[in-house]
Design a protein around this nucleic acid. Structure first.
Lengths: 209, 209, 209, 209
DNA sequence: GATGAATGAGCGTTCATTCAT
DNA sequence: AATGAATGAACGCTCATTCAT
């Protein structure tokens, strides 16, 4: 990597971070080029040296943010541990990471751009791809647990997607001011709901494992 | 109701429907007054005869749409049936209604305005209220099933919220092009996931009941 | 005059009165067709049965209002009285009439349409004509006083115009919140200023006559 | 002052001049942002780089214009001259300045915004203040002449206001096409009217001084 | 490369005018 | 004749994008 490329990567990273902060603070709609530039302490025009337009910049910000979340999730995973333990750890990590990047995840939830309004959009495809990478990891862990018999036979991709949505939903519920319990208890309930459903008999032992 | 009121209600309804269609097609951001007017086959100015401003119109479109969904869900409920049957029927109805109003629900999913960026907003409050009414219905059915022992002890409001989110998630997954199975099979899987979780044994009888 | 014409005159009069009240309350800019219609307790469209457009209506309202003021001023004049007495009476009447129609005169002062921005405008001509009629009356009285020697040789039209402007200015000053004295005293000062200027000796008898 | 400030001041000045010209040509109501921008040979958006909104811009244009007139008037005053001479010079200067800035003064006369329809408006207050500064200068000269006995005892503020209005009225009369004499003669007549009133005996010597 | 002043298309909104009833 | 719902041109203003410095 040349010196120029290093500098370029640095600038791009700074801008994307500023963009994510701005999205977190003002939402997608309120995220103007002016605000991102101010947040990044650079001139407005400079952004256009690194991105062809606003949409591309915001897209990159989201994709990169999502990738970082996925990486963080993956790094906490111990592939040698028993599958069911891996699953439990994973879920707890999902909640933790979500809390750690609440503003950004909030923006993702509130202004989902996973599905664009123009089918076949290149950016939509990329976003989907990044999202699928995270889901693939979840589903592979689920499949491992399935082989162990710890988890019943179920479409692992569907289950992974639902798990992801349920954890997001927990944050959404909190943002809506509907949570009555402490966060930890709520998350535990969601975890048990995913594991045992509403009809499941005794989830007591999940605490221990 | 006088003739004028009938006409007014009709016009308001037409505009709100057009607004929902426009949101479905272009998203919240892309939903301009011009586009709604065009979709409703009226002049831009006409909208301002029925609504004080754009925000109020879009808010009404969402609230009314949500209310209609809730009403449709309620009307399918037989309060005299056994609670677990009511719950199963309810879930199946949720999927059916979602499919019947896909564009609107899509818009709700993609640009959630349940949480605004200005806390204490009057419209946010109303939206929340309408949403809570639907959740209250779900949770009351869940509580009935709990008393019967058909459902384990779990925060009914949290469970209702998760159920709502899981059904939305199913649509979202389809919109993302991630579904591989027929819709019916996918919905059955989500239903079972809500009932038994990933660890629960899939009982053959859930198909029948 | 046929029955239809009587009705038409009545309607026109009602609308013009409403227009003047609306101008007085909201100013020229704030005087919308909607507001005039509401003030006249008729439908908006009805106005267009009696006037080709808004401008014509407002013009008529002003012209008619001005004519009424002129008529009121004339009616108080006793042509057989000594010229100087007529002049004094006239000035006092000008102040009184101005006070009696303050809102309308205020609008005339604030948004003068005597000079339009399109030279040669038909309406401008008419407005000028009506205004000149009032000035002609003033100047004829002044000329009478000149022949008597009570007033020195001076362009009577110019003096009449200045007198009219000075009385308006008195109201303007009050509207600007610059008056410190009671209205009567202020008006007396203006009268004396017109009669004797700043250098002239203030003769005690002007109070009495 | 930095280079940026100089440029900014220049631009602001250009815009304000364009605004005054536009007011002069189309009146307050006809003075749209588009027209001002076109008159200034800049894009519409550029105006918003220098002013928060249209009202503020027009207000600044009027205030600045008025201040410039006041300054010009003041600069012609020789405080060491005999009061009556100062007064005569002042009045002649008022006429001259008025002629030199006819378009702008015309706009002031036609669409007076000294009295707004919303009392207590910040801008109204400022406008009044600037106007009062000019009047204060006039009245101080009048007071000086009063002490000398050259002018009789009269409320100096009222007299100053009337003088200002009389000079404006002269322009107004010309705009109305009512003047028959040369401008100089007309202005002389107004001056003598202010000094001696209509009853004053011999204004012949005012020519000489 | 970096800047930020300048641009102008596009937005939400108002309101004079029209016309079917 | 009277209505008022409907219209759409025109407004003030925002902001993504460009480009001379």
């Amino acid at each position: 990597m040349t010196k120029e490329e290093v500098l370029k990567n640095y600038r791009v990273g700074e801008i994307l971070e500023a963009a994510r902060r701005t999205i977190g603070r003002f939402g997608y709609e309120g995220c103007t080029v002016d605000r991102v530039a101010e947040e990044a302490h650079i001139a407005k025009g400079t952004i256009y040296l690194y991105f062809p337009n606003k949409d591309e910049m915001l897209h990159s910000a989201v994709v990169e943010g999502l990738r970082a979340l996925t990486k963080e999730l993956r790094s906490s995973d111990d592939a040698s541990a028993p599958p069911i333990d891996r699953l439990l750890t994973l879920i707890k990590e999902m909640f933790r990471i979500q809390r750690a990047h609440e503003d950004f995840v909030k923006a993702l939830i509130l202004d989902s751009r996973f599905v664009s309004y123009e089918p076949g959009d290149r950016r939509e495809e990329e976003l989907r791809k990044v999202y699928l990478e995270m889901l693939d990891h979840l589903s592979s862990v689920l499949e491992g647990a399935m082989k162990d018999g710890a988890v019943r036979a179920i479409d692992p991709h569907l289950a992974a997607f639902m798990l992801s949505e349920m954890t997001s939903a927990a944050l959404k519920r909190r943002l809506l001011g509907m949570n009555s319990e402490p966060v930890a208890a709520e998350e535990q309930t969601v975890l048990e709901l995913f594991l045992y459903g509403v009809r499941g008999i005794r989830p007591a032992e999940t605490n221990g494992r």
